[in-house]
Design a protein around this nucleic acid. Sequence first.
DNA 1: CAGACAATCTTAGTGTGCTAACTATTATGC
DNA 2: GCATAATAGTTAGCACACTAAGATTGTCTG
Lengths: 152, 152
Amino acid sequence: MPYIDQTASEFLEELTKVSRKIRTTFNKKVTAHGLTYPRARALFRLAKKQNMTQTELACELELEQATLVRLLDRMEENGLIERRPDAHDRRVKLIALTEHGEEQAAFVRALADQIRHQFFEGIEQEELKQAIALMQRISDNVSNVEVDDVRA
Amino acid sequence: MPYIDQTASEFLEELTKVSRKIRTTFNKKVTAHGLTYPRARALFRLAKKQNMTQTELACELELEQATLVRLLDRMEENGLIERRPDAHDRRVKLIALTEHGEEQAAFVRALADQIRHQFFEGIEQEELKQAIALMQRISDNVSNVEVDDVRA
DNA sequence: CAGACAATCTTAGTGTGCTAACTATTATGC
DNA sequence: GCATAATAGTTAGCACACTAAGATTGTCTG
């Protein structure tokens, strides 16, 4: 196996591990509040832009619609969001934060700020930007693989 | 929110997305073979080092033991591995690849090489090494957060 | 304008990850 | 040496992620 492949393998391993670690650690901090990492992601988006359709939200979070349905089911059970009918299209449901949802969004924002300082201690912004650009290029490559499959 | 926090948020988002994308795309390629990304990870480790205990394997894969149990259950159902008793410690089970497991490991290795070339097309080794080092530093920071919690 | 097509959300089923609690076995310590 | 603690693996229950297939509603085309 050439060196580059070895490095690529290590990259994938490290990516898998660090993302699982971050998700798990974040979850531990917020479980007491009926929250999780995916729910926090959704809360953030909704705090920025209310009354999105599920399709829009799924697109922004890059989740499948079916995945989002159950995520929203639980957020609804926990009183974080409401599904409201759309006046113009009866297929559509608009997602709105409840008052409790707004409060939790604010809480999570504060906690996330604190956690970020711990997670990224000693890390320069420039390093993060390079890594983001790298991940986006890889992401594009992965998408192209999927397109290739469709053609084949 | 300071610029650095904005960048850190983007980093987390991108990390979440790219790792999910990679896992999903890989899964699509191998589902027909009764394989998945986590199973492939386990196969790789076992191909390198047979007769590990479950605890050792869980440690190398950085998974909880309970997670590994079910992963191995399914790999056993698919005839990829065997659990063998340890002569010296009746609590321990040693994990061995079956013949079919060896074959699948070879198949997955070839497929993974091909996929890596697509995923990492146009990416320099040096970029990957920098990213790996960055993720390891973040990983360490995350671990320290957990330690802090235990102390608190 | 009717029937085919598309879009939106849901349900069902599988796989993976976690924590917590349990069983069986081995190690330790008084 | 026997009670206690630690270790190895399991089970149970929850949360997410996916695909595939279904129900309802809207759109478009012939």
